[in-house]
Design a protein around this nucleic acid. Structure first.
Lengths: 251, 251
DNA sequence: CCCTTAATGTGCGATATATGAACAAATATC
DNA sequence: GATATTTGTTCATATATCGCACATTAAGGG
């Protein structure tokens, strides 16, 4: 790529949008300049541009994003075949088994939810398309990591911030790599309360017609109601069925 | 705003992202140039920038967005207090009544979903935060329009593309304005199969501590199970309760 | 209340970007 | 298979942006 094929102002503006998060929903010009590393003047121009376009509001002191930015994320969901194809299958599966079902893809060290059919909430946090979880401790993350060459999977794990969320959490890279071997061998991942107490989740990979892993799908169940072995017995068939249904549609 | 306080390259790049939608998930450089009105050279530079940043992929012919763009929309959901405050209340309400509950805000002529707790699917389309519906025919849209000065509400209606979705759909601006008067008077909107056959939905406005309408919340029910009058009898109290719970939190 | 410190706004030269035309390459049409 | 048409890429140049330094305003402290 040539130097002239890159629009710096665009890249900087996107960094500004990404600077807004839960810890800092309202940001001043100086805040943005610090967190993005941009010059204050540049940050200010990007912010005023966002305001002008209706993506942000300004009260003279602080900027905040408007719901219009959801348009951008939605452009992906509306435009990409995979989320649209998966959604009805997830709905069906979720209703069949009476538990929440989700689909996600790998993005760096995290999984990104691209579709979800939710039943009663089990997890402490609400998941919607666009939500992210660390790959190493999520069932779909394990499935997606297992699909990578071992060296790449290891590289992702080494870049991840690994910490024990519960007493059961596997935290050593060695243990996680061994787990990925197991996942690869059996064709599914079962995570029993490693992410959150009371949550047991099982995932399988989704393949396209060429056999490449394009996403993962999972079912989450309250661990108080059933043991991990029961989760496997009850939900594996449904997941495999969805896997088989989707495959011919993806090419 | 001064001329120099606007970053053209940023604005053009955002237009490029918005150019992707369900009808055109994969776009060539020329496609983008046409749909955005940008010069082909400029469109190309924006697209290559997106690829460089990981927001898009390029196979040498067509561009498509990657899940990374969900980051942008999610920046709003994570950063804005309203969606985060409403979500647990919606979960609770939804579970109580056994129907889906949602919250949305007005954006031009459309409502944008900012939070949702879904039960079994009633509507034909899947709704997630970021989804949009025309305001004039949705219960939350009616509530949000009713909160505007009449002249503004009329202006929005006149800009809207109004069409009969079902035999019950109110399509005349006059009828819709009368409906808004009723909504304003009774403090809620009840839409009985005007958007989609078999769907009945009721909404109330959400106010902040100063009494301004900041969003709307609704419950959707299958019309085959219950008449509109029953929807009102069963769900109004729950909606009002949520309304009262949220108000002191919004300032 | 004044002084200090920090944050925001502004003008300007250096630098990077947008433009449209020209060319090359690939498709479509006949 | 030759021609027309669309598409992608490159280039020179006019133009807009960037980042710095300075001016201005607001905030905090004694």
């Amino acid at each position: 790529m040539k130097q002239t094929d890159f629009v710096g102002g665009f890249a900087k503006g996107l960094k500004v949008i990404e600077a807004f998060d839960a810890e800092s929903p309202r940001l001043s010009i100086a805040d943005i300049a610090v967190s993005t590393g941009l010059d204050r003047a540049t940050a200010r121009r990007c912010l005023l541009t966002l305001v002008e376009l209706g993506f942000a509001r300004y009260d003279g002191k602080y900027f905040e994003l408007t719901p219009k930015v959801l348009r951008l994320g939605h452009a992906y969901l509306a435009a990409t075949p995979l989320p649209r194809l998966i959604q009805p299958l997830l709905d069906h599966l979720s209703e069949d088994v009476g538990q929440s079902a989700s689909a996600s893809v790998l993005e760096g060290t995290e999984i990104v939810y691209i579709a979800r059919a939710s039943q009663r909430r089990v997890m402490s946090i609400n998941l919607v398309p666009g939500s992210r979880l660390p790959a190493w401790c999520a069932s779909m993350g394990r499935v997606l990591l297992a699909a990578l060459p071992v060296s790449e999977a290891r590289a992702v794990l080494e870049r991840s911030t690994i910490q024990a969320n519960t007493p059961s959490t596997k935290v050593s890279i060695q243990a996680l790599l061994a787990e990925l071997d197991l996942v690869r061998e059996q064709g599914f991942a079962l995570v029993d309360q490693e992410l959150e107490l009371g949550l047991c989740s099982m995932a399988v990979p989704l393949l396209d017609t060429r056999g490449s892993v394009v996403a993962a799908v999972n079912i989450g169940a309250p661990a108080v109601q059933m043991a991990a072995s029961e989760v496997r017995a009850r939900y594996l068939a449904g997941l495999r069925h969805l896997q088989a249904e989707l495959r011919p549609l993806m090419n």
